[in-house]
Amino acid sequence: MIRGRCLFRLPSIERVSLRTRLTKPIRRASTQPKPQPTTTTTTTYPKPRSLTRYLRTSPRLSLTYSFTKYFLASALLLHIFFEYFYVLELAWGISMLPTIASANDWVLISKLYRRGRNLHVGDVVSFKHPDKMGEYAVKRIVGMPGDFVVEGTPGKGGSGRMLQVPMGHCWVIGDNLTWSRDSRTFGALPLALVTGKVVRVFSFRQGWRKLNHGLQPAYAESDALD
């Protein structure tokens, strides 16, 4: 009745509501009695609903659930990425000085080289310290298993004895020979302690930089070398 007299078009929601109101069945006195439902003893259970549909009933519950889910997922994936692929860590100390600064240098460690896989002499590696549990160090590999290395510092005293690096071990030395505690202190390093190879160094001043091989063939200035 209103609909017929209205000059303007009503918004769709109201139209719908009006239509539903109008299309409601009109209760009339029926001549035939309704069939009475037979009483049966059936237990009714609530319709099973999924967890997400249940959580949708409360906005607070839903928010907590999705937050937890995404937090857990990112934590798991980040752990796997840091443990098995790449990790960026802040290096500290003077033992690798010409190559890595004593502070404010970040090293990108590739975990694909963990436990000595595909490593060669001259690579800079990160490893768990064999003497101090929970500490990590970065040094350069000078000898791989089977290689012969000098026990002490060349030209700085020491016995000058040659050692053969045992199976499954490597010999690591810092680039800053005078101020570095390395294989000269703790002996051959088990390759199982190597956590990865340093592939890039980052600092805010110089940006990203690659690492040079660091070991060049030695040239004698005179032939008087016995």
Partner: peptide, 8 residues
């Protein structure tokens, strides 16, 4: 532990 002689 990881074997010191065989890293893997």
């Amino acid at each position: 532990f990881r074997s010191p002689t065989r890293p893997d």
